[in-house]
Design a protein around this nucleic acid. Structure first.
Lengths: 208, 208
DNA sequence: TAAAATCTTGCACTCGGTGCAAATATCTCT
DNA sequence: AGAGATATTTGCACCGAGTGCAAGATTTTA
């Protein structure tokens, strides 16, 4: 009997299971990046991962999930990042710093390739939008946990909506940036503009 | 040979084609609302519309498209509504009024049922998110057409992102509203809060 | 009315995804 | 170590979405 560092039991069974899962993920990703998402069949993946087609579905409910399971960690990471900001920091700033932190630490080689894949695959692009919706939901939760007053609900929801909007617009803008630009610098600059613009919109929207 | 009011030729061929398309749409929608989206097969639809399964795909590229083809008009309607606002109106206000107008005139019985259907069908919910992305794109275009200065690009993009965010949050909120509430009243009130909140966010985001 | 253009259909096929039951591997307990 | 419980993997048969193609029906044009 084997024990992991955190004291949980992990027999041969779960070891193999984890390895198989990783093998499938690896096989799928490499195939997607090689030939594209649509041109890769589940049997291709199963073959490379040395499992049966049927077993693929024991690990992932669909082809798309292989792509997005990977990304799901981001949302949790973001929530944690926000929760760890000082309690007296205004919500707006906590989101900004939490978000920038989470993005910077998530933006590696692999993530970029994945982004490219998603961007050029219509099916995935549609599904990708759902990610933002989920993120908005989680963000709302994370913010609610921070705010003491209960009637701030609408504000919190709007903040989440607006910030996710910024994330999308900012992401697009980032993709148009010349390569070699520092993501961190860009993000800070972007948020600077963003808050300023938001204030303008707010003021124009009210009587002026 | 028959002529439509706008002077375009319309022979028996396009008449029938239009009718067939309408029949399919009608059949699909009624079945979706009766038994749900997933429980309806394309053959069910084809049968009720009295065409072959194969012909269904001559009219719609997928089952989902039947649902969303209907909604696509909204985006164009919105663009037109914004374009028709007075040129000296600030962009922010033009969007608000264009949007509220477009929403109010699109919110009929059918649209509500459709919204319900989408909300309770995961597949459609995912696809529905894409609608917002498209809307944001079109909105950006519509706004660019209004702005003279060229360096306003970022502002315009952000405005679109933020407004679509508001649309989503507002839509959710609206669905939580007690029935019988006036959509128009709600929309105006919502935007009132919205701009104010935006200004707050903007100010907090900058040094304060 | 004949030929050209277009529309509809049936058919065979691919792929994603599911249910089920048999076979295989792992774990537990003695 | 070995028997029996438990979990995993697999093959197989199946369904529904969606496509390509070619033959047949309909409409248009001349």
């Amino acid at each position: 009997m084997t024990w992991t560092t955190d004291g949980a039991k992990e027999g041969r069974r779960e070891i193999k299971r984890r390895q198989t899962r990783e093998r499938i993920e690896e096989a799928a990703m490499s195939l997607f990046l090689e030939r594209g998402f649509d041109a890769t069949t589940i049997e291709d993946i199963a073959e490379r991962a040395e499992v049966s087609k049927r077993s693929f579905f024991d690990y992932f409910p669909s082809k798309e999930e292989v792509v997005f399971a990977w990304q799901d960690g981001f949302a949790d990471h973001l929530m944690a990042a926000i929760a760890s900001r000082p309690a007296d920091e205004p919500a707006v700033k906590a989101v900004q710093h939490g978000l920038v932190g989470a993005i910077v630490s998530a933006a590696d080689e692999r993530a970029m390739a994945l982004g490219e894949l998603i961007r050029r695959t219509p099916t995935l692009k549609a599904r990708d939008q759902l990610k933002y919706a989920k993120l908005e939901l989680k963000l709302t939760e994370a913010l609610k946990a921070r705010s003491r007053s209960d009637e701030e609900r609408l504000r919190v929801r709007l903040l989440a909506a607006v910030v996710i909007g910024a994330l999308r617009a900012g992401g697009e803008l980032w993709n148009e940036q010349p390569p070699g630009t520092s993501l961190e610098t860009f993000a800070h600059q972007f948020f600077g503009d963003f808050w300023k613009t938001l204030a303008d919109f707010g003021n124009e929207g009210q009587g002026r």
